[in-house]
């Protein structure tokens, strides 16, 4: 079995815990309970008959103005998911800041971006969502792909982890 460490980094209340909970346990809760420190969840993927991939998913305390992401949690990661809240402009503006931390601490590792909570935006601004995704994609060439996700509706949750897992095995 191949074991890989994946960390989710982003501003507080962007839905990192919810994305993990949706992916690992297929559960969701609207209640916001701030994450303190770090909690690790395991998810095993059967890649092929011979290959089993175990993801050690690190749910890290979110970045705030008074407390930045602790580098000790990021060191040793094999893959990174940067998370922003699509309804909170500042959390998206901070993604390049999180990316800088990743580049400083890790050698070339696969990175994907989740613009979460897309369920909170009305359908009519679907174009706006796509624009945000494309803009971010274009501005950060180090990033494999940008997804608009919803832990609530499950939209693209599996996709971010699958995309990252495939890259981890290359």
């Amino acid at each position: 079995m191949i074991t890989k460490k994946v960390v989710l980094i982003g501003d507080f209340a962007t839905g990192k815990t919810s994305l993990i909970r949706r992916y690992v346990d297929n559960q969701f809760s609207d209640e916001y309970l701030t994450t303190i420190g770090v909690k690790i969840s395991k998810k095993t993927l059967q890649i092929s008959d011979e290959i089993e991939l175990q993801l050690m998913v690190w749910d890290i305390e979110g970045h705030t103005d008074v407390k930045a992401t602790n580098p000790a949690y990021v060191i040793g990661a094999h893959g990174v998911i940067l998370v922003g809240d699509i309804t909170r402009e500042k959390s998206i503006e901070n993604i390049p800041l999180h990316l800088e931390l990743v580049k400083r601490l890790l050698k070339k590792v696969p990175i994907v971006i989740a613009l979460n909570k897309s369920d909170l935006l009305p359908n009519e601004i679907e174009i706006e969502i796509e624009k945000k995704v494309l803009d971010l994609d274009a501005s950060l060439p180090e990033v494999l792909k940008v997804f608009d996700t919803s832990a609530k509706s499950s939209k693209n949750v599996e996709a971010i982890f699958i995309t990252l897992s495939q890259a981890l095995l290359l």
Binding site: F12, A13, Y32, T34, I36, T64, V66, K90
Partner: peptide, 19 residues
């Protein structure tokens, strides 16, 4: 952590409320 948790939660809740 128990001592810290409430104040962090309150601070984040307040921040979210302001946003």
């Amino acid at each position: 952590v128990q001592m810290q948790q409430k104040s962090i939660q309150d601070r984040n809740d307040k921040e979210l409320l302001l946003l």
